[in-house]
């Protein structure tokens, strides 16, 4: 790595430095633009002093210039363009694009006319509401287990992080198909049947799905375990010792020391969980959105691009709402415990 860099800079020094510096000299010492050590003059009239602060801003902006350009092209423009399109009926004629303003018609159609979307979205939201706490709790348990005085910490971290490396859509789809993502003996637990028979199908089906895919839920916890583990390791051991001397049990120490200390990281882990589950390629909602966009599933009301833009915005808002609720719940609790 170092050797390559040195070679590159040697080549630059040898062949490019002289012509480049001559070129830069020409570009900065002419009638339009005159650069001296203390100031820049445009057309011999407008004079700007070079201060250290200004020089620093220009260099800094130069470093992040790539990002600014990328942000405008690949983030800001698409976001607003898709928001704009979500109010239109879009028809494609070859390369040209025809827009017909429909106001909130697309949004109304999504909720009132689309036979599938609302159902898929509600199912997804319910599943997320169940899965996120389960993921976080498991991640916290595993992180705390590894953080104990155990042997082969590295090996445990390696095992629990492994799913992050290998979980791509098709691999997981195949495992799900063959029933390898559910615990082998989970059908034997009668309490799941109990839940399913005793509460309405509306609530029971996500719970059932949660247990059927419990391994998948756990597999999503890889990064979160590391996040929480990093937080646990940062907590000062002396605080625990002090609390022990004052007679606190490990149970109390967990609620009064551990949990409050890693609360901010739990928020981070929640955001990460929601985002990673929402953009995972097996998620039905995003598959539905893509199919609408490509015109593969054509409900009677299909309006192609415009409609898929509407759906993605509804989806994004639902996701943001869930993040807001979870993170809000976590931070409110923190405030209560502090007072």
């Amino acid at each position: 790595m170092k050797g390559i860099l040195e070679k590159i800079s040697a080549i630059i020094d040898r062949y490019l430095a002289t012509p480049l510096s001559r070129l830069i000299d020409k570009a900065t010492h002419n009638k339009m633009l005159m650069v001296s050590h203390t100031d820049i003059t445009f057309f011999g009239k407008v004079k700007i002093r070079i201060t250290n602060k200004r020089r620093e801003s220009v260099i800094g902006l130069g470093f992040i210039l790539l990002w600014i350009v990328g942000y405008l092209i690949f983030a800001l423009y698409p976001v607003f363009y898709s928001l704009y399109l979500s109010f239109f009926k879009v028809r494609l004629d070859g390369a040209s694009i025809q827009l017909a303003y429909v106001g909130i018609g697309n949004y109304r159609a999504a909720f009132l006319q689309d036979p599938y979307f609302v159902e898929i979205l509600i199912n997804y939201v319910l599943r997320l509401v169940l899965n996120v706490p389960v993921t976080i709790v498991f991640a916290l348990i595993i992180a705390m287990l590894i953080n104990q005085d155990v042997k082969a910490k590295g090996m445990w971290r390696t095992i629990f992080f492994l799913p992050v490396i290998i979980s791509s859509g098709p691999v997981i789809a195949e495992l799900m198909n063959q029933g390898a993502t559910t615990l082998p003996s989970i059908d034997n637990y009668t309490f799941i049947d109990l839940i399913i028979t005793n509460v309405g199908a509306f609530i029971a089906s996500p719970i059932e799905a949660l247990f059927a895919q419990i391994l998948l839920v756990l597999w999503f916890a890889g990064i979160q375990i590391l996040i929480l583990l990093a937080g646990l390791q940062k907590i000062d051991k002396e605080i625990y010792e002090a609390s022990m001397i004052d007679g606190a049990s490990p149970w109390e120490a967990f609620w009064k020391i551990t949990l409050p200390s890693i609360m901010p990281l739990i928020s981070v882990a929640i955001i990460y969980t929601v985002v990673s589950m929402s953009v995972f390629s097996l998620n039905e909602v995003i598959i539905y959105i893509r199919n609408i966009m490509l015109g593969e599933s054509t409900p009677a009301l299909t309006t192609g691009y415009g409609y898929s833009a509407t759906l993605s915005w509804i989806y994004f808002l639902a996701m943001a709402l869930i993040i807001g609720i979870f993170v809000g719940a976590v931070t409110i609790r923190k405030k209560v415990t502090r007072t």
């Binding site: 698409p78 399109l85 994004f316």
Partner: peptide, 14 residues
Amino acid sequence: IVPPQITMMPTFRM
């Protein structure tokens, strides 16, 4: 946080 579904379609057009 912005899901790729939002930016996907204009990017696809582009």
